[in-house]
């Protein structure tokens, strides 16, 4: 019986995704490089996806969870393409991608 708690169940995947989410939040909050912030956003999206697919495996949700995960991956691809184009434009204009130095809109 003692090995049953180590068997990977729903809670194990949820804990992994929670830790991944907090690491992504850490990257978003503490990095000043735009590309590092983007990578943190990718981590957050991946942790949400793990949750969706874990619920689709262990509950009545069945394939609907995988479907939503598929759409999340597609939207993440679109987001990354547009965000990188914006970053290149910002670099062209300000010659930096340091978030602290891009403060043109600050009063």
């Amino acid at each position: 019986m003692s090995s049953a708690i180590f068997e990977p169940g729903l809670n194990h995947f949820l804990v992994v995704s929670a830790l991944l989410f907090s690491l992504g939040v850490m990257a978003v909050l503490s990095k000043r490089n735009v590309i590092m912030v983007l990578m943190g956003v990718e981590l957050i999206l991946n942790s949400a996806n793990i949750n969706l697919i874990a619920f689709s495996r262990f509950t009545e949700l069945s394939l609907d969870g995988q479907m939503i995960g598929l759409f999340v991956i597609i939207i993440a691809a679109a987001e990354a393409a547009v965000a990188l184009a914006i970053v290149l434009n910002v670099y062209n204009r300000f010659k930096t991608i340091n978030l602290d130095e891009i403060n043109l809109l600050k009063g």
Binding site: F21, S22, L23, V25, M26, L29, S30, K31, R32, N33, M36, N98, D100
Partner: peptide, 16 residues
């Protein structure tokens, strides 16, 4: 890469 706000950021992420 420069790391800023290390203590508040780690507090918030550990809390989350």
């Amino acid at each position: 890469t420069i790391t800023v706000n290390l203590i508040p950021a780690s507090l918030i992420s550990v809390g989350i």
